[in-house]
Amino acid sequence: MQERDLSRTRRWIADEERCADGRRVGEARRRPAPEWLIERGLDRTNIVAVHMGECWELGKRVKPASREQAIDALRQQVPACTKCRPDTALGIEV
Rank of each mutant, 00 (worst) to 15 (best):
P64W: 08
T82K: 05
T82Y: 15
Q76R: 15
A65P: 09
A49Q: 09
Q77S: 13
P64H: 08
P79N: 03
V78P: 01
W56Y: 09
R75V: 13
Q77N: 11
P86E: 09
A80R: 02
M52I: 08
R61V: 09
R61M: 13
P64F: 06
P64K: 14
Q77T: 13
I71T: 09
D87S: 12
R85M: 10
Q76M: 11
G53L: 03
W56H: 12
E54L: 11
E57R: 09
G53V: 03
A73M: 04
R75M: 03
R67P: 02
D72H: 10
R61G: 05
C84D: 05
P86I: 07
C55W: 06
I71P: 02
A70V: 12
C81P: 06
W56A: 14
E57T: 14
V78Y: 04
E57K: 11
R67A: 11
A49R: 07
G59Q: 02
R85F: 10
C81G: 04
A80K: 02
A89V: 11
K63E: 14
G59Y: 00
V78W: 06
P79Y: 04
P86S: 12
M52Y: 00
K60L: 08
M52S: 08
D72I: 03
Q77I: 10
L58D: 01
C84I: 08
L74Y: 00
D72T: 05
G53Q: 02
K60Q: 11
Q76N: 13
K83R: 14
V62G: 00
E68S: 15
T82Q: 15
A49E: 07
A73W: 00
T88G: 05
D87E: 15
A49P: 00
R61E: 13
C81K: 00
A73V: 03
V62S: 04
V78E: 06
A89Q: 10
L90G: 13
L58C: 01
A73E: 02
C81N: 14
Q76E: 14
V62E: 07
L74R: 00
R61D: 09
P86T: 10
V50M: 11
T88H: 15
W56S: 12
E54G: 13
A49N: 09
D87L: 14
H51K: 10
A80I: 10
R75S: 12
L58G: 01
R61W: 15
G53N: 01
C84Q: 08
E57G: 10
A80L: 04
K83T: 15
R67C: 04
P64Q: 14
Q69N: 12
R85D: 06
A65F: 10
K60P: 04
A49H: 01
P86M: 07
D72M: 06
P64V: 02
Q77D: 14
M52R: 02
R85P: 04
G53H: 12
K83Q: 13
D72Y: 07
A49Y: 09
A70D: 02
L74K: 03
E68C: 01
V50H: 03
C84V: 09
A89E: 11
R67I: 08
K83S: 07
L74T: 05
A65G: 03
V50A: 10
M52L: 15
Q69H: 07
K63Y: 03
P86R: 08
W56C: 01
Q69L: 03
Q69A: 15
A70T: 05
S66D: 11
